[in-house]
Amino acid sequence: MLLSKQKKNDKGNRLLVSITVMGSAGPIRFVVNEKELVASVMDTALKSYAREGRLPLLGSNLDHFVLYCPIAGTEALSPWETIGSFGVRNFMLCKKPGVDKVIDNGKQAGDATITRKGAGSWKAWFNKSLNLKISSH
């Protein structure tokens, strides 16, 4: 019994991380090992995001995204650092600036996001949905 506990400690502690994706409705939560690299956590977050069918569509190329720790400042986290080295569990995943402008032979790259009609009006939609719920009383 003591040996099994030692093996678990060698792997490191497990953390429940919460990753908020810019433009998405809510955070993605999953359990990771504290010794996992930031790049691995970003990959897991993008796969979970796609599996859940969330919008806006993001793609899966890790080079197009950065992970921030809101408490640590405005610097993006290095993909080669361990996720447990920051001492926090809440992160923000953002698309790198200028990724949507990547052009390949005159066409937009296939991994770029798909724009929706009225993509910039989420605040208007949110306010409208609140007004509908309030006025129905």
Rank of each mutant, 00 (worst) to 15 (best):
G110V: 05
A45F: 07
C94N: 11
A119R: 12
R54F: 05
K35S: 06
P70H: 07
K101D: 12
K101W: 05
T113L: 11
L93E: 02
N13T: 05
N90S: 12
N131D: 14
L58D: 00
P56M: 06
G12W: 05
A45L: 06
S24K: 11
I19G: 01
R51C: 01
L130P: 00
L62W: 08
G118M: 07
K7I: 08
G98C: 11
K8D: 06
I71P: 00
A39R: 15
L67Q: 06
S135K: 13
V21N: 01
F126H: 09
I134P: 00
N33W: 02
P27V: 02
E81G: 00
K128P: 00
T44H: 11
I28E: 13
M42I: 14
W122H: 04
L16S: 10
K5L: 12
S40L: 07
K11E: 12
L58F: 03
L132Y: 10
M42C: 10
P97V: 08
Y49V: 02
A39D: 13
L62V: 10
L2C: 02
V31N: 06
T44L: 10
D63R: 13
T44E: 09
L67I: 03
E52T: 02
Q108G: 00
Y49S: 02
N90M: 04
T115R: 15
G59M: 06
S85F: 05
T74G: 11
K7M: 06
A45T: 14
S135M: 07
A25P: 01
I114E: 13
G118I: 04
Y49A: 01
F30P: 04
E36M: 14
L37G: 00
L132N: 08
